[in-house]
Simulated scan of single mutants.
Amino acid sequence: MIRPVIVGAGVAVATVALAHAALGGYVARRLIAPRAPKTYVPVTIDGETVMVPATPDSRQPGTYGLWLDDGAHLTVGETVRVDGDRIVRSLERRPGGVDDGPAAGAWTSQSVGSPEHVGPTRHVVIPLRRGGTADAWLIGDEAAADGRWTIHVHGLRSSRHGALRSAPAAVDAGWMSLVVSYAGDDEAAPADALPSSLGTREWRDVDDAIGYAVEQGAREIVLVAWSMGATIAMLALEQSAHRDAIAGLVLVAPALDWTRVVENAVVGAHLPRTVAAASMRVLRSGLGARALGLVEAVDARALNWADGPRPGADLPTLIVHSRVDPVVPFSGSMAYAQRHPGTELVAFDATGHCNEANQEPERFHDSITGFLRGLPRA
């Protein structure tokens, strides 16, 4: 009598454990998966407005972008009116050759469609130690900048256009802006075959960009890093041969503790918090890494500069982060700022992840320009 009960309990426990491991693997796969292809939906352009489907993203206040299926970019402003399941928003920038009428567009937070809209631009390529090159935009007046450069690093499942939103502030402060790409992002080939390593491999490409900037005459460099880009920046600071050239950090909605990020995603999906730990076990195991297509295992728990063993940066630092960020918890930025007294934390109330620049553009811009202008000359 007792034996069948024990065997039955053992089977139940094993079944639960297997289900837990499967959920952990699913979460890990979703976490590192490359960005899905853009989804184009019917939109209607009419003079100085555009009508788009009503979605949680298109209902957000602020300024955003719309990529048309022919590659054109529209800058979309505030809501004009709501017509049932459609929203009419103002058009702030519309390139020549885009006619009125129906079109296919993909909504994006990338509100700046071209680096040329920011300032004088050179399209450059950065040699990579892993072979090949990475495309980048170099924006600004090099003579006026006099060796002061910012390097803008986008986040997970994004591209240079995502980080382009911080370039106007840097250029207006008199600094050059180098907006970079890296392994596995939207531009790297083959992007759809390279899952993210959460920065543990990507940082080398950004370090190569730092080396490029130094070779081109940069004497003071500020890393402007978005979301997972902050992880990349921190890893580069720890290991870069050009560490002495880094004069400061600007971190936008920064991922400074991946345990918080993964737990937040799991809780948001109404899964047990223990699934987060299971997913991180999958990532750091050799078998799990191979199953996920990773080149090497990733210890996400160790990527913690907020309150973990990593010391963080002894540099002037500005953090710009929304208190209600649904993806990267604001608590990580608070913990980092408390631990590093030289950090200035500017709190926003923007809805969505990395929407500070979209919803409060002037405050976002002024926070960065003020920080950069306040840095003493080396």
Rank of each mutant, 00 (worst) to 15 (best):
E142G: 00
A225C: 13
V153C: 10
Q110A: 14
T133D: 11
V124E: 10
A144N: 02
S197V: 06
E215K: 14
A236L: 14
W137M: 06
P168H: 07
A170Y: 03
S227Q: 01
M234V: 01
D192L: 14
G162W: 08
P120T: 12
A193P: 05
A143I: 11
G211P: 14
P120N: 08
E202C: 06
V125E: 15
D100F: 01
G155S: 01
A188W: 15
V153N: 01
L198Y: 05
W226E: 13
G211R: 14
G199S: 10
G101A: 05
G174T: 06
T231G: 12
R148H: 13
L198N: 03
L164E: 01
A183H: 09
R201I: 13
S114K: 09
T121V: 12
A167F: 07
P190V: 10
A188C: 05
V222E: 10
L156D: 11
I151A: 03
A173S: 05
G96N: 12
L235A: 06
S114C: 04
A225W: 00
L223K: 01
R94L: 00
G217T: 04
E116D: 15
L178V: 03
A143G: 10
H117V: 07
E220Y: 00
P190F: 09
A209T: 05
G131M: 04
A136W: 01
M176F: 04
L164Y: 03
S177E: 09
A189I: 13
L164M: 11
I151F: 04
G105D: 01
Q110L: 11
V153P: 02
A106V: 11
V118K: 03
A189C: 05
W137N: 08
R129S: 14
G174S: 08
I151W: 03
G199H: 07
A188T: 13
A236C: 07
A225T: 08
V153S: 05
G101H: 03
S196I: 06
G101S: 04
G105I: 07
W175H: 08
V98W: 00
D172R: 12
P102T: 12
A163V: 00
A189R: 15
L198S: 13
G174Y: 06
H123V: 15
D135R: 13
M176R: 10
H117R: 14
H123W: 12
G174Q: 05
A191C: 11
A218W: 08
D135I: 11
P115R: 05
A170G: 08
G229Y: 02
V124N: 03
I139M: 09
E142M: 07
A188D: 15
A170D: 05
V180N: 02
H161R: 15
S166E: 04
L235I: 14
A163P: 04
R165Q: 13
A144L: 13
A167T: 12
R148Y: 05
A144W: 09
H123N: 13
I232N: 01
